[in-house]
């Protein structure tokens, strides 16, 4: 098991949002978390990140970028742990060829090739989101945890992004609002409702209408 929670109450500052959560995610799974906004998907993701952050990349909901830094720098942040402080600072001031060469193909694949040295504060919401994804891809690792990573992308882009993520990471856990996309992309769907896990099944066994109950009052 890569991630495992057994009958736990999850929430911020002792204020539990989710109750009695038991879930195990093993290597190689592609999990989509679905449910109404505010159901607790983000809570679950952040708990997993806290517990198992060691070799896991994170794509936060608001992209989590440094707006005054360029796309290159924001993506490069995914590799800060691989280098010493001096080399990192060197790249902050003067991006090194080797690092640009590492970052560029990832960024190009996500359609940001012409924005490499543009401050992320000047980008659209979707472009910022893809910058955060590029950062996670450069970071790599066993797994990626993504909080609505394709919320601002169109259908085509979403597929490019999801393909890129599943190529890089053997295990993918994403909160998603687009149910069709979730069914298409993931191997397993976890539905959250009323402070608990209301559904946990292989994607192949589910249909779109079978998920509707998650969004009903």
């Amino acid at each position: 098991m890569l991630f495992e929670l057994a009958n736990e109450d999850l929430g911020y500052d002792g204020d539990a949002v989710l109750h009695g959560i038991s879930i195990g995610i093993s290597k190689g799974e592609r999990v989509a978390l679905v449910g109404e906004s505010g159901a607790g998907k983000s809570t679950l993701l952040s708990v997993l990140q806290d517990r198992y952050g060691g070799n896991t990349a994170l794509i936060p909901q608001q992209a989590g970028l440094v707006r005054s830094l360029s796309v290159f720098h924001n993506v490069y942040m995914g590799s800060l742990h691989r280098h010493g402080a001096a080399y990192n600072l060197l790249n902050l001031a003067w991006p090194q060829k080797a690092e640009v060469a590492r970052v560029r193909p990832i960024v190009e694949r996500l359609g940001l090739g012409d924005k490499l040295f543009v401050p992320t504060g000047e980008l659209s919401g979707g472009q910022q989101q893809r910058t955060a994804i590029a950062r996670a891809i450069l970071q790599g690792g066993d797994a990626v945890l993504g909080d609505e990573p394709v919320s601002a992308a169109d259908n085509h882009q979403s597929r490019v992004i999801l393909a890129a993520l599943s190529e890089t990471f053997t295990t993918v856990v994403l909160a998603m609002h687009d149910v069709d996309l979730a069914l298409e992309f993931s191997t397993r769907i976890v539905g959250i409702k009323d402070g608990g896990i209301a559904l946990d099944a292989p994607a192949a066994e589910l249909t779109r209408s079978g998920l509707d109950f998650l969004y009903r009052k």
Binding site: G53, G64, S68, N88
Partner: peptide
């Protein structure tokens, strides 16, 4: 500091300071 939680595990304090903390307040 929105970028701070997304930094890879094991990033040194100097690197995280100059990349994720300082640029936001630099102006």
């Amino acid at each position: 500091l929105p970028a701070l939680p997304a930094l890879p595990f094991g990033t040194g304090i100097i690197s995280s300071f100059f990349f994720a903390r300082l640029p936001d307040v630099w102006v």
